[in-house]
Amino acid sequence: MQFTLNGREVDVAAHPMRRLLDVLREDCELTGTKEGCGEGECGACTVLIDGQAVVSCLVPFAQVDGRDVRTIEGADAQALQRAFMDHVGAQCGICTPGMIMAAMSLGPDPTRKQMQEALAGNLCRCTGYEAIYRAIGEAKRANRRTPLGVESIG
């Protein structure tokens, strides 16, 4: 199966019905994408396909044929990652890669409501979400002040 993975053309041989999540973790050795629930509920396994957030535990591998897949390893999300550290937006950390991938779709200076909607499919058992919203708010503001934002996903 040929597709673009974190900006590089790749050709990965794997069974077409395997979950994208498993192919990424086991065949592509990209273990940043986590499995939480395995039923689409928690968002820990969120990656971007053609720029759209999806849960990779519910994507048959065949369906990334010719598409553009972006995982946390290639997200180029330093501003978000730093803000998550600064605001303790990550505690145990299992939800964090998915949170950051889901947050990538937000524009600059998102409102609280926009953040809640973008992250509605991402569960966190540790932080109570407040620190996550603060982190994203700051990263997206900082990003706006930096014309050459580090978050462009190409």
Binding site: P16, M17, R19, G38, E39, L58, V59, P60, A62, Q63
Partner: peptide
């Protein structure tokens, strides 16, 4: 038929999917 798989792959993950042959509509 397999579309966005948001119902079918939940069943696959649970191990409750009895079907073995699928047709990919997504493309």
């Amino acid at each position: 038929p397999l579309a966005g798989a948001t119902d079918l792959y939940v069943a696959l993950n649970f191990g409750t999917l009895t079907a073995t042959r699928f047709l990919d509509l997504w493309p």
